[in-house]
């Protein structure tokens, strides 16, 4: 499973992955619809903002909420990952064996499949979000190019954490019978603590400082905060370091789980 071999196969892997994503466009559409939670939350929070004469909540007025949740929607679309589900099926039904027979690391293959699906997912979801942003013209999207550069790095970090968590949960299928539930547990925390349903700065300062140390906000809330101009350059850069520390940590956990899991898989059956 040399890296060189994987790298050389990369273009074809990506192309075939994209072809698969196109073949599954109906599922993709369903997936996009299934991640419209930010839009429901947008309805709720703008209703809240309208209440009481439209006074702002924290730093969010109606327009602020619109910018926030549309951004959250975009970030979620670009960083979404289903690898845990596929891995779970592969481990359970033994189709992982087919992947193991190939001289490409299965984790690399899952990653590439995920990347290959991004263009299709973006095509399905982004136009609508961008049109909404253009039409609604919410105040608050940052215009600082340096912040947008940081945003790109933070998006990559968010995607990496999400991917590694997915792969780690996928690996847990080697050890426990229903690893899907673990993902449920993670998602629960993600929903509350990542800024997916509530902008993090609406929490009390104590909760906020706790959230700073947890991985969840780096999966979503952090890039969204940069996008919506809630963070200055220095603040964003400092958080970026923490985010990438989480990338390293989740990658490490995944590597350990994979190594131990595959030994178990070899002992028990494929």
């Amino acid at each position: 499973m040399s890296l060189r071999n994987t790298a050389r196969a990369l273009p074809t892997l990506l192309r075939v992955g994209l072809a698969e994503a196109v073949a599954y466009r109906a599922e993709m559409f369903v997936w996009v619809l299934a991640t419209t939670m930010p839009l429901v939350m947008l309805a709720l929070w703008t209703a809240v903002a309208r209440e009481g004469g439209g006074g702002a909540l924290g730093r969010y007025g109606q327009s602020g909420f619109t910018a926030y949740f549309l951004s959250a929607f975009i970030v979620r679309q670009l960083t979404g990952c289903w690898a845990f589900y596929e891995m779970n099926v592969d481990v359970r039904q033994g189709t992982l064996g087919m992947r193991l027979l190939r001289p490409v690391h299965p984790l690399a293959a899952y990653t590439v499949e995920n990347i290959a699906a991004v263009p299709m997912r973006a095509l399905v979801s982004l136009p609508a979000a961008l049109v909404a942003l253009a039409v609604l013209q919410p105040r608050g999207l940052t215009r600082d190019p340096a912040l947008w550069a940081l945003w790109t790095a933070s998006l990559l970090g968010a995607w990496s954490i999400t991917l590694f968590v997915n792969l780690a949960v996928g690996c847990s299928a080697f050890f426990i019978e229903q690893s899907l539930k673990l993902m449920d547990l993670w998602l629960v925390l993600y929903f509350v603590l990542s800024g997916y349903t509530i902008p993090i700065d609406l929490f009390s300062p104590r909760v906020q400082s706790l959230v700073d140390w947890l991985p969840f906000r780096y999966q979503l809330g952090f890039p969204v905060a940069i996008m919506t101009g809630a963070l200055g350059r220095q603040e964003a850069a400092a958080l970026l370091v923490r985010q990438w520390a989480w990338v390293a940590a989740t990658a490490g956990v995944t590597a350990v789980l994979w190594r131990r899991g595959i030994a178990r898989f070899g002992a028990h059956g494929g």
Binding site: A9, L13, V16, G94, T95
Partner: peptide, 21 residues
């Protein structure tokens, strides 16, 4: 058990294996 990509033509699987191997 099959290794063919279910929703794509077999030629895609061949091409994929060419790259992988």
């Amino acid at each position: 058990k099959q290794q063919l990509l279910w929703d794509l033509p077999p030629s895609e699987t061949f091409e994929l294996n060419r790259a992988v191997y």
